[in-house]
Design a protein around this nucleic acid. Sequence first.
DNA 1: TTTGACGGTATACACATGTATACACAAGGA
DNA 2: TCCTTGTGTATACATGTGTATACCGTCAAA
Lengths: 214, 214
Amino acid sequence: MNVLTGGKLKLVQAGLRLITESRSLTSLGLRELAREAGLNPNTFYRHFKNLDEFGLQVLGYIAADMKSGVRELRQMAESSEQASRDTVTYVYHYFLANPAATTVAVRELHGPSPLLRKALEAQLNASAREMAEDIIERQLVNAVPPETIHEISRMTIRYILFRAMDYIEKPEQRETIQRETERFINRQFRGAMLDNLSQGDIETLVKKPSSRVG
Amino acid sequence: MNVLTGGKLKLVQAGLRLITESRSLTSLGLRELAREAGLNPNTFYRHFKNLDEFGLQVLGYIAADMKSGVRELRQMAESSEQASRDTVTYVYHYFLANPAATTVAVRELHGPSPLLRKALEAQLNASAREMAEDIIERQLVNAVPPETIHEISRMTIRYILFRAMDYIEKPEQRETIQRETERFINRQFRGAMLDNLSQGDIETLVKKPSSRVG
DNA sequence: TTTGACGGTATACACATGTATACACAAGGA
DNA sequence: TCCTTGTGTATACATGTGTATACCGTCAAA
C-alpha cells in the first residue's frame, strides 16, 4: 500500500505544517523540511530522489485524504432542495479541517511546477466527475443535460476550492461565503435550465407573476 | 507621477519577464532580478527597500495597466444579447496580451504574502465594481437587483482570471474556454433572475413549452 | 554468525543569497 | 567652484542551500 510511516511520514507532515504557515509546496527546501521534521538533512535522500518527487508524494497523501472526503459526500444530499446547502456545509467543514491540503491545492493548481499542476488538475476533475455522476444518479436536477452537469460541477469544485482559502482564514466571513456558494451553485443550475431559451422568452417568463415575486 | 524610469523600470520589467517563465513574484530573488536586468545586485537597494516593496511596485505597475484595459471595456457591450460575448472576447485577448500581469495576479491572489494578497484583492474588487456599475448603468440585466449584480461580477472576475491561465497556456482550448465562460456568465445572471422563485415554480415554468424546448 | 539492506547521522564542499560598507561618477544648485 | 544628491559598482561576510562521501545501529535472512 501507499501508507507512509516513520521518517517519510514525518517529512510529509513537516511539509504540510510549513505550507500552512504561509509557504508554498514548490518553495520548500530539503534542509528546511528535515529541520522541521527533526531529522538530518540527508535523511531526505533515503526517502525521496529530489524535491519534485517529494511534492508528488505530498500530493498523493492529500489526494487520498480528499477522496475519502468526497466519498462520504455521497451518503448525504437527500432532497434536491437541501442538496446544495448540505453539500456546501460539508465541503467547507472538510476544507477547514484540512487547511494544509487546501492551501497546497490552491497554491499549486496555478503554481510554477507543470508536474504538480497536471496532477492536481486530474485530481480536481476526478472529484468533479464524481460530483456530477452523483447528481445525475440521484436525479437532483433533471432539467439539465448530463454534459452540462459535468461542466457546472467542474466550475463549482474550483469555485469552492478558491473560496476555501478565505473560509479558512477569515472566520467572520464563513457564513457569508457559505451563502454565496449556495447561491452560486443554485444560479448555475437554474440558469442552465434556461440554456436553450432566448433572452426574450426568459424576460416574459420572469415578468409573469408566479407564487411570489417582489 | 508614478512613472518608472531607468534602473527601476529595468528591474520591474525583469521581474515580469522572470514571472512569465514560470516563476512566482514572491519567489524572486534580489540578485536574480539584478542579473536579469543586467545590473549590479546592490543597485536594487537604490530603488527598493526590500523585496516586499518591489512586489508592491510590480503590482502597481500592472494595476495601472489593467485599469486602462477595463476602462476600454466600457466603450463596448452595446446589446444585452451580445454583451457577455463581446466582453469575454475582449478580456481574454487582454490577458493574452499581458501574460506576465495575468500570471502574477493568479499566483499571488492566493500566494504566501498577505500584503500582496490584500492589494490584489482590492484591485480585483475594484474591477468587479466597475463591471457591475457598467452593467447597472446600461441596464443590461434589469431583472436582477444591484447587490446581486455586484456579487456575480466579483465571481465572474475571479472565474475569468483563473481561466485566463489556461487560455494563455493552451491555445487549442481557447475556443472552449471562451464558450464556457460565456455560459458561466449567462447562467449566473439567468439563474439570478429566478432567485426568489421556489424550486417547484421553476420546474413548472421550464416544463411549459415555450418558443422551443428540446 | 555473518551479511546486507534500511534508516539515520556527521562532515564537508561549492555555490547562491541578502546585506553592509566603501568607492565612482554625473548633474545641478549654492 | 564646491557640495550634495542620485544612480551605479566592487568587495566582503555570514548564512542557507543541494549534494557527496563516509560512518553507525537495527534487524531480518542466509
